[in-house]
Nucleic acid binder design. Structure first.
Length: 702
DNA sequence: CCATTACCC
C-alpha cells in the first residue's frame, strides 16, 4: 500500500498535540486523516487514560472508517476499535478508538457533559459545518476551559476556514497535511450559461466526442433536472454517428433513488463504454464513484433554509461555496489526472462564490438545539451568548425560545421546565416530543409513538407522484388509508398499524409503493422511543389497532388533542371563503394545504377550520406539509398564551441587558411584530374573538 | 400542484 501523506507528519502532529490542547488539522482529500490520526495518537499512548473519539457527520462514514481502522490494526471490529451510530453500538469495554456520529456524541454529553471517558476527541469533517458539529465545537470550547483532566481536541477542517477555526479556539496551532489527489485541470466557462441544463448537455457531448476514455460526473441540483438530462443525453448519444466514438451509458444518482438503482454506479461498465453519472450533491461527500476522470460542475446546489421570522422553510437553488467547488473538482482526480469543467467564469469563482457553505446552524430552526443546550447540566449557560463559531441571528434564537415556551419546554423566564427536560431526552423535534408527553396523559401514547416515528422518516416514506409511474407498473399500488378525514398524521398512523398487522412484511410495503428503507427506519425509531418512554409511560406502548370506528374515533380525538398541544406554534386557521389558511404564529402567513395531503374537504368543499401542520415549506408556493384537523376549543388556550408572551423575559433579558446591543434587537423584532399592518399581539385578541364568533355561528347552524 | 441530504445511546 502506498504511504499515506499524513504519516510523514506524524512527529510534527504528535509534538503539536502534546504541547497544545486544541489543534486544527487541514487535511486535504486523500490525506488519510480520518483513519490515521486516531491510530497515531493510539500508538503514542493517548488511549491509556481514555478513549479516542472520532466524530463523523454521516453514519456510513463512521462505520466504514471504523472498519478500515480495525482491519489495519488487525483487530475485530467492536473490540479495540468500534463505532456507535443511532440504533447500533458496536463498542465494548475494550474499545479504545471509537468512531461515532456527531449526533451520538451530543447524546452522550447529555448524560455526561464532561465526556469523562474520552482522552481525545477528533471532530472530523468540521468544514462541512453540520448543525451537530457546530454545537460540539461550542461545547468543546467550554470543555477545554473547564475540564480538569487534559482533554485533547483535534478539529479537521478545510483550507479556506482553518484560520477562523484556529482563532475560535484561542489561536491554536494549525497544521496542513497535503492530500493524495492527482492534478485536476480546471476549465472555466467564458460566461455563465443561460440554461445550465443545456450547458451540461453540451459539455457532456463535447467530452464524449473529444476526450479519451474516463467516466463523467455531472453535478446538478435535483431529481427533476437529472431526469431531464439523462433522457436528453441518452438521445444525443444515440444520435451520434455510429463508430464515431465509444458507447455510453447515462446513470442518475440522487437520494430518492431506490438503493438497488443507486448501487448501479458502483459496478464497472462494459469495456469501451463511457459512463455519465448525473448526480446531486450526494456524490460530493456521501458516495464516491470510482472511475471518474471528468467532472461537470453546474455551480449550483439545492439548499433548505429556514426563515425564523415566518417559521417557513424554503428549498432554494443557490450557488455552491468555494469549498464545495473544490470538493466537486477533487472527484475527478481520484484515479488519475482529471478535468473539471466549471459552468461559470473564474471571476464568478473568485468573487461570487462564498468561501464556505453557510453553516446549517444559520439555516435551521433552532428549537431542538436550544432545548438541548438548556437541558445540559451546565451552569452559567446563556443561550443568546453561547459561543458559536458562527452564531445564529438573535432573531433565530428568539424564535426558538418562543416556540419552546409555547410548548411548555421553558417557563416565562426562559428556564427549562420538567416537561422540557423530558423532551430533551427524546431524539425528536420538540413538537413531537411534546406531543408524546401530552399523549401519555391522555392515554394514547401508543398512537403518538407511531405518529412521531412516522414523521421522523418524513419524505422517505410515501412515493412522490412520478409522471410515468402508472404506465410502467403492471399493477396499480394498493391505495393507502385516508386518515379518516383527519389528515396526514392519522394516515401515517393507520399505515404503520396495517404494516404491524402484516408482521412487518416488506412485500406489503412494496405493493403499496412505500419505501422499505423508510418503513424499517420508522420501526427502529419507534422501538428507540419506546425504550426511552418506558420509565414514564402510563399505558401500553405496543402498536395496536382499534376494533371499530367508534373506538378509533375516540382514540383519534385524544391523539389530535395531544398533537394540538405539541404543535402549539404550528397552527393555522382556514380563511372564510376558500381553502387557504392563515398561520396563527407571530407573523401570520397565508399558506395552502400541500397537494400531497390526504385531508378531505367536507360536503361544502371546505377543509377543517383549524389544523396543525408539521412544516411550512415554500416550493412553488407556501405550503403546509402534513396537516391534522384540530378542534377550535383546543386552539383558544394556546392563542391566549401567545398573547401573553414576553420575548424579552424569555431570553433572560432583564435590566442587566439594557446596555447591550442584543437588547436593541429584541426590541426591534418585537416592534416589527407589533406594528405595521399586521398588529400581531393585538391581532390575536381579534383573532380569538373572530374565531369564537365563527365557532358559535357554525354550532348554531347545526 | 410536489423533495437535497444528512442526523439523534
Amino acid at each position: 500500500m502506498a504511504q499515506l501523506p499524513i504519516l510523514q507528519f506524524e512527529e510534527k502532529i504528535i509534538e503539536t498535540v502534546e504541547k497544545n490542547q486544541v489543534v486544527v488539522i487541514i487535511g486535504e482529500t486523500g490525506s488519510g486523516k480520518s483513519t490515521q490520526l486516531s491510530q497515531m495518537l493510539h500508538r503514542r499512548g493517548y488511549t491509556k487514560s481514555g478513549i479516542i473519539g472520532v466524530t463523523q457527520p454521516r453514519r456510513v462514514a463512521a462505520v466504514s472508517v471504523a472498519r478500515r481502522v480495525a482491519e489495519e490494526l488487525g483487530v475485530q471490529l467492536g473490540e479495540e476499535v468500534g463505532y456507535a451510530i443511532r440504533f447500533e453500538d458496536r463498542t465494548s469495554e475494550r474499545t479504545r478508538i471509537k468512531y461515532l456520529t456527531d449526533g451520538v456524541l451530543l447524546r452522550e454529553s447529555l448524560s455526561d457533559p464532561e465526556l469523562g471517558q474520552y482522552s481525545v476527541i477528533i471532530l472530523d469533517e468540521a468544514h462541512e459545518r453540520s448543525l451537530n458539529t457546530d454545537i460540539l465545537m461550542g461545547l468543546m470550547k467550554r470543555l477545554i476551559r473547564m475540564r480538569s483532566s487534559n482533554l485533547k481536541v483535534l478539529i479537521t477542517s478545510a483550507t479556506l476556514d482553518g484560520d477562523k477555526v484556529s482563532k475560535f479556539f484561542f489561536d491554536c496551532p494549525l497544521l496542513t497535511v497535503p492530500g493524495k489527489l492527482y492534478p485536476v485541470e480546471i476549465l472555466y466557462s467564458n460566461e455563465r450559461p443561460k440554461s445550465y441544463l443545456e450547458s451540461c448537455l453540451k459539455t457532456a457531448i463535447d467530452i464524449h466526442t473529444k476526450e479519451p476514455e474516463g467516466d463523467v460526473l455531472i453535478f446538478m441540483t435535483g431529481q427533476d433536472d437529472i431526469e431531464k438530462l439523462v433522457s436528453k443525453l441518452e438521445e444525443k448519444v444515440y444520435n451520434l454517428e455510429e463508430g464515431s466514438c465509444m458507447d455510453a451509458v447515462v446513470l442518475p444518482l440522487h437520494g430518492s433513488l431506490p438503493p438497488e438503482l443507486q448501487v448501479r454506479v458502483f459496478s464497472r461498465p462494459p469495456p469501451n463504454c463511457r459512463r455519465f453519472i448525473a448526480a446531486t450533491n450526494i456524490a460530493e461527500t456521501s458516495l464516491t464513484v470510482d472511475g471518474v476522470v471528468y467532472v461537470i460542475d453546474s455551480g449550483y446546489v439545492k439548499q433548505r433554509q429556514y426563515n425564523p421570522s415566518t417559521g417557513m422553510y424554503s428549498l432554494d437553488v443557490v450557488q455552491i461555496s468555494k469549498v464545495q467547488a473544490n470538493q466537486r473538482a477533487g472527484r475527478a482526480g481520484r484515479t488519475r489526472p482529471g478535468k473539471c469543467y466549471r459552468l461559470y467564469t473564474s471571476m464568478d469563482y473568485q468573487e461570487d462564490l462564498l468561501d464556505v457553505t453557510v453553516p446549517e446552524i444559520q439555516r435551521s430552526s433552532l428549537a431542538g438545539s436550544v432545548l438541548y443546550l438548556k437541558s445540559l447540566d451546565l451552569p452559567d449557560i446563556d443561550i443568546l451568548r453561547f459561543d458559536f463559531l458562527d452564531p445564529p441571528t438573535s432573531e433565530s434564537l428568539e424564535d426558538a425560545l418562543k416556540q419552546l415556551y409555547l410548548i411548555d419546554a421553558i417557563d416565562e423566564n426562559g428556564s427549562i421546565t420538567k416537561i422540557g427536560q423530558t423532551m430533551a431526552e427524546l431524539p425528536l423535534e420538540p413538537s413531537l416530543s411534546r406531543t408524546l408527553i401530552e399523549a401519555n396523559e391522555y392515554g394514547c401514547i401508543s398512537h403518538a409513538l407511531t405518529v412521531a416515528a412516522m414523521l421522523s422518516a418524513e419524505t422517505t416514506l410515501l412515493p412522490g407522484r412520478r409522471k410515468n409511474a402508472d404506465k410502467k407498473r403492471k399493477h396499480r399500488p394498493v391505495d393507502p388509508p385516508d386518515g379518516s378525514g383527519w389528515g396526514d398524521h392519522i394516515q401515517l398512523l393507520q399505515i404503520f398499524e396495517l404494516w404491524d398487522q402484516e408482521n412487518y412484511d416488506v412485500n406489503w410495503c412494496k405493493d403499496r409503493d412505500l419505501q422499505v428503507r423508510g418503513m424499517l427506519f420508522v420501526k427502529d425509531v419507534r422501538k428507540q422511543l419506546c425504550q426511552i418512554m418506558q420509565k414514564i409511560a402510563k399505558g401500553s406502548l405496543d402498536v395496536w389497532t382499534s376494533r371499530n370506528q367508534k373506538e378509533s374515533r375516540a382514540e383519534y380525538w385524544n391523539l389530535r388533542k395531544a398533537l394540538c398541544v405539541g404543535y402549539a406554534n404550528q397552527l393555522a386557521e382556514r380563511m372564510i371563503h376558500h381553502n387557504g389558511y392563515r398561520t396563527l404564529s407571530f407573523k401570520p402567513q397565508v399558506v395552502q394545504v400541500h397537494p400531497s395531503s390526504v385531508m378531505k374537504p367536507d360536503e361544502d368543499g371546505k377543509f377543517a377550520d383549524y389544523v396543525v401542520y408539521h412544516e411550512l415549506i415554500t416550493t412553488s408556493r407556501p405550503f403546509m406539509r402534513n396537516v391534522c384537523a384540530v378542534q377550535v376549543e383546543w386552539v383558544m388556550p394556546i392563542l391566549n398564551k401567545v398573547k401573553n408572551l414576553n420575548v424579552n423575559k424569555l431570553s433572560g433579558g432583564s435590566a442587566d441587558l439594557t446596555s447591550e446591543p442584543m437588547e436593541g434587537n429584541v426590541k426591534d423584532s418585537l416592534k416589527k411584530e407589533d406594528g405595521g399592518t399586521t398588529p400581531t399581539l393585538d391581532g390575536h385578541d381579534n383573532k380569538i374573538q373572530a374565531a369564537r364568533e365563527r365557532f358559535l355561528a357554525r354550532k348554531g347552524k347545526k
